[in-house]
Design a protein around this nucleic acid. Structure first.
Lengths: 252, 252
DNA sequence: GACAACGTGCGACATTGTCGCACGCCCGGC
DNA sequence: GCCGGGCGTGCGACAATGTCGCACGTTGTC
């Protein structure tokens, strides 16, 4: 095992765990390293963009480079704050409820929720974890996640309705289709009478960090043949692209 | 600049750029490195959880560790299961009660407890949260935790006995001493007549994930001058080192 | 205003990572 | 089915690399 890499990862974990920026000495003490060694590691990590040093306080914090890498290194809070306005706009234009979700070990975690503009009696879904294989956001996230193969392989696909995709084969075909067209939908696969359309939000390198989509009654989301309405699909995809551009563009 | 860290970041960038998993040779060729070197870097990155290798295709991809940078370093259950045998051995050799603890927002959470071999009337402490600034395990954990500064700064150091360290200044000096010598003790700082000796358990890179120590009557833990017995200190430190080796070696 | 503590840089040492080679294994082909 | 190429992996020797101790200049604090 390469020592300096192990130490680097420890430094990064330390910076991630700490609430604020950390001093060189704090890191050195926590890891039991001499100041010089810790400083050398930090300088290198800064050079590659994994950490950044605040010029004023001389303290170190996680850098943009790491966020671009991991994608999920993308902080949920940052993702939500960046996508917030776009989600509002999508809800206004589509007149549907909009949700944003990220992949979670146990499914899709809803990190933002905009109520449908013309409806007042809706449940707040933020914080909820919904099944990945039976929702539009979930399937979109699975389609672009490198770990999806595992989830698919392990079976255990619960059936929530008669339309739920339960076989790994069907799910794999769904995911392939999503990858091909760039968006996904789920019609009555989780809750009867409800459907969703979702598209992936990407950061630098095309890495998918989350999904955004609309969700509501089948008759509003789909046409008479139960196919997702083209206009809605386009709006969702356009919003996802806009957020992706927003996430990729500015470097702090 | 540290070469191996730069190379690691290049590997991670490479893995992030390509949506598909990459072979060792592909990475090696792209970076102009010998296969062995690339393999060593990948193995280390896998060890720290930044990349994962698909057992079937032997290809590498980005790992969960990058995503979980904000999360906890090690599962409490795993830590306990790994340290269990070592704790038993320490209890047998030292003939003292052994406890294992991790840092908690409100103190030290005792996650394992081995009774003193020759004593039957003892209370089970597992699950208990004990004060951090007045116990050996707590002070050890504070010494290596970057959040300790906050805890120390905010005052609120309750006095449990006459010997409890209550001023941030004294506590800071204690923590510095612990960092210097690699172990810590607390003599009648929490419960009168009782003392403890503790040492940190580390994972790769030196990250401290918990503390292990002995705890018992002052006359057993300390010598006639109320200094912790050297033999006990050495046993505790040796056990902590052994657990650290165990934690670092096999997959974390 | 003085002290302490921090971040930073430099140099020597030896520990550490690198590199070349070779072993098994799986896959593909004549 | 047998053989060949290519790949992932492990080992060992070398020396290049990272580490550590010390000291400087500066900042922040009492």
């Amino acid at each position: 095992m390469i020592q300096s890499i192990e130490r680097s990862s420890a430094v990064l974990r330390l910076l991630a765990a700490g609430p604020d920026r950390l001093r060189v000495k704090e890191i050195a003490d926590a890891l039991g390293l001499p100041k010089s060694t810790a400083h050398g590691i930090l300088r290198t990590l800064e050079h590659v963009g994994f950490v950044e040093q605040d010029p004023r306080t001389t303290r170190y914090r996680l850098g943009r480079g790491l966020l671009d890498l991991g994608g999920a290194g993308m902080d949920v809070n940052e993702l939500r704050s960046r996508a917030l306005d776009w989600a509002d706009a999508l809800a206004a234009r589509s007149v549907e409820a909009v949700r944003i979700g990220v992949l979670d070990p146990s499914g899709v975690r809803v990190i933002h929720h905009v109520f449908r503009p013309d409806d007042t009696t809706q449940a707040m879904d933020v914080g909820l974890v919904i099944p990945a294989h039976a929702t539009s956001m979930g399937k979109v996230l699975l389609a672009y996640d490198v770990l999806a193969a595992d989830a698919v392989g392990r079976g255990g696909l619960d059936a929530y309705t008669r339309k739920t995709v339960t076989t790994p084969r069907e799910l794999a075909r769904d995911l392939a289709e999503i990858r091909a067209q760039g968006w996904g939908c789920a019609v009555e696969e989780w809750e009867p009478g409800r459907a969703g359309i979702a598209a992936p939000m990407r950061i630098y390198g095309g890495l998918v960090v989350g999904a955004i989509g609309v969700y509501g009654p089948v008759e509003r989301i789909c046409d008479s043949r139960l196919r997702p309405r083209t206009a809605l699909v386009e709006q969702v995809c356009a919003t996802a692209r806009a957020v992706s551009r927003d996430l990729t563009g500015p470097r702090s």
